[in-house]
Design a protein around this nucleic acid. Structure first.
Lengths: 225, 225
DNA sequence: GTACTAATTAACTATCTAGTGAGTTATGTC
DNA sequence: GACATAACTCACTAGATAGTTAATTAGTAC
């Protein structure tokens, strides 16, 4: 069997002929890697397995991302970028302070529930002590808008004399985040210990309302406002 | 150099002669493994490295724990046992309901801060979707006392008409846990994003007081009690 | 002191895994 | 249409890694 025979006998080769598309290839790798890293962790994910799930070859992962850590860092940065974009959509400045706080809490609640892979990547990166995240440029600035939004609400509430003044936007952000992150991140051990599914549909309405109640009760605590 | 010469020339061989101590060997392996797994995760930890840090050999890990997963499960169970023992020490039934809640919140706060390795193991096991923890026998029972304690406090407060009644011990436990766990577990990414050290000494008093305030404000929210 | 077994040691291996070497092809440029 | 180069393919490798084989020794029971 000669080379020309093979080529001539396989017209489908033309249909699947090599076409170039760097953006698509890079994006394809990144998406697959994000799923794999979120699923198995940095040390648990396998380059060969990631490669097998892409439309390209392993060599391309190294071509575009250098090494496993480089790919992981690219995944982390992309994950934070996507979250930032989604969060920039929220607009609560037209609401009364109390209702704005509740809306923010519930948005965070919904958001974290909708992005369990992001929560997993964050947990994985904390297990890794954040060494890869600190290398990402300009991350603090991406989070600043969310804090400023919260700060404006607090300020309005404090000016109106209905919110306590001995707290900050970071305090409240941390309080809301901890609740919403824990519910998604720790659901497995919580279920194992207490046989209670934090992400179960039957518990959702109650847990969703509760975080708003908690934050508002704290901000409007008698004797503090 | 003959064999007898070597033996005769090394009297210290007698000092380090093999002595048997199964409990000590097992315990030694378990402690080293706990540190390593908490540090690097299940997939990140290396059996050879764990073995090298023990006073025994790799073969002994397999002798006592079967395989890597078996060792990891033993570590998890031991970690929860230790935590349970510490938590069983707390006694808040003599305090007024509000003060009992505050004491419980601050105990949890201090406890999690004092056991970052435990928090790490929990995060790792959640990354692992809890598959190893569910195999641990009798875990729910070990957590029951803590929930019952909290339930008694709530009941007393509700009977006295000072606590809201539309919440449960599990709700409050989850609220306190999420705050205290997040502070330790997510400090790295939080620091990277907001340049604020959740476990820094300068923030500790404020954050420690805040969780008690939050829970009490919620439990005593006007219009709900 | 002999026999037995649990505890321990040392050397070994199959497989996995991240990473590469070296060449090939598509595509834009002149 | 020759040239340059970015994008891509394929086969390969060094070293790491979990797990094993098999022999040896310290206690223990009789």
């Amino acid at each position: 069997m000669t080379r020309s025979e093979t080529t001539g006998a396989t017209p489908e080769k033309q249909a699947t002929k090599r076409t170039r598309n760097p953006e698509k290839t890079r994006e394809n790798i990144l998406r697959v890697a994000m799923t794999e890293f979120a699923d198995k962790g940095l040390t648990g994910a396998r380059i060969d397995e990631i490669a097998a799930k892409t439309a390209t070859t392993k060599r391309m992962l190294y071509y575009y991302f250098g090494d496993k850590d480089g790919l992981y860092r690219a995944v982390l940065e992309r994950a934070y970028e996507e979250i930032r974009y989604e969060e920039s959509q929220l607009d609560v400045d037209h609401l009364e302070p109390a209702e704005a706080i509740r809306a923010l809490a519930e948005l965070t609640f919904d958001h974290h529930e909708a992005h369990p892979d992001f929560i997993r990547l964050v947990a994985i990166e904390n297990t890794n002590r954040g060494v890869n995240l600190v290398q990402a440029e300009g991350l603090p600035e991406t989070q600043a808008p969310a804090i400023r939004t919260l700060d404006r609400i607090l300020q309005r509430g404090q000016d109106a004399g209905i919110f306590r003044t001995d707290t900050t936007a970071l305090d409240i952000h941390m309080l809301i985040s901890s609740y919403c992150v824990f519910r998604v991140a720790n659901r497995y051990t919580f279920k194992a210990l207490f046989d209670w599914d934090l992400t179960g549909a039957e518990n959702r309405p109650h847990l969703r309302a509760m975080i708003g109640d908690v934050v508002l009760a704290y901000l409007q605590q008698p004797g503090k406002v």
